[in-house]
Design a binder for these strands. Sequence first.
DNA 1: GGAAAAATCAGGGAAAACCCGTAGAAGTTT
DNA 2: AAACTTCTACGGGTTTTCCCTGATTTTTCC
Lengths: 217, 217
Amino acid sequence: MNTINVGIADDHLLFREGIRLILDRDPQVQLILEASNGQELIDAIEQGNQPDVVLVDLKMPVKDGMETTRELKANFPEIKILILTMMDQDDYILHLLDIGANGYLLKNSDAQVVVKAIHNVAQNGFYFSDQVSQVMLAGLKRKRKTPPALTGDTRLTEREREVLELICKEYTTADMAEKLFVSERTIETHRKNLMEKLGAKNTAGIVYRAMKEGVLE
Amino acid sequence: MNTINVGIADDHLLFREGIRLILDRDPQVQLILEASNGQELIDAIEQGNQPDVVLVDLKMPVKDGMETTRELKANFPEIKILILTMMDQDDYILHLLDIGANGYLLKNSDAQVVVKAIHNVAQNGFYFSDQVSQVMLAGLKRKRKTPPALTGDTRLTEREREVLELICKEYTTADMAEKLFVSERTIETHRKNLMEKLGAKNTAGIVYRAMKEGVLE
DNA sequence: GGAAAAATCAGGGAAAACCCGTAGAAGTTT
DNA sequence: AAACTTCTACGGGTTTTCCCTGATTTTTCC
């Protein structure tokens, strides 16, 4: 197994020292790059000093973790990024994962977790603690569901839901009729009712509204 | 610590037996309910036989895992649901997590993983393997993917995106042509290209895929 | 400054969706 | 028993999308 070259960007020297001590105990991990802010890290990397994994603090002077992550991912997509932070603010997690961070480490994680995260990121390209997974799930739900149902009754019947799902699978009326053993007329009626219930004007609208309302899961 | 009462719905007797043997080795876990499909499981639960955690196979006769999850979450939200499946199709994972599944277990997981998942779900309300986390992340990452996409180029041009949005707003070809000051032919071409790029067979498919891929917010 | 990508336009025809209204059968609720 | 819901189904249209085979003009990029 190869050595994992690691870089770190954090404005607290003491914290960097701590990390160094932790990583020194793992012969497979080599801390090759230290920077006190994101710009320093990027500069060093651009001069050819390229690590496999970087630990990036979120809150740093000059260039913060967010901006650093964005730039690194744009120019060195192969470098894995582990975000280090004290806060476990949900928004940040989602945002950072979205711009390409490969993992997220709370600063109060214990030593083994840090090492494990580095290995995991190097091998699998990501690391998520249970904590982060939970936030991700919450994020998924938030993104997919619209709180208030402005339109009237969006509760669909079983059959309607079935037709809806087939519509999404790009079945035509004839296809659906065959699949569900009913006449095309029946499918047409269901589609018409779907349009009414969802307030859509055409099939594309059915799909759009169903997905936005979270009717489709 | 309390006993965790577990139920299982799977149409393969042998598989259920295997699970029983695995769970028997953990004194804290008690398998109190076996069903060969989702309907059976729900019936038993409605008769007062309520477990803390249920393992639900995705593919089952009578009532499949998807429908079962939906119903259980609607009527017994406190029961934790672990989806069991052989396929690790991304679609399903997101889908199920979204409708309330608390975890997702591949059937080829080893025994310890199953036990661990049950404990985790009972305690923390969720269980995610690395595999699932990865898929969740993919679900979060909408738009901006890696530049060279093997899976067909889903990067849309400005104009295509514009047309896509109008399609969602239920504009017809004629409406769009008027709005964008171009001929209907042009709109048709854009729609055709959208179908190609998104791999859709019709307009409904364009919307569905665009939303699923995160091309559309 | 040439190639590639994007945007524009077209005819003709087949297929599918959409619009009216209507309505019976079966099951559930009140 | 009447009312309601759901699923089913029809006729006879109009409108829209989809398919095929083209094409010309920008804009963008190396």
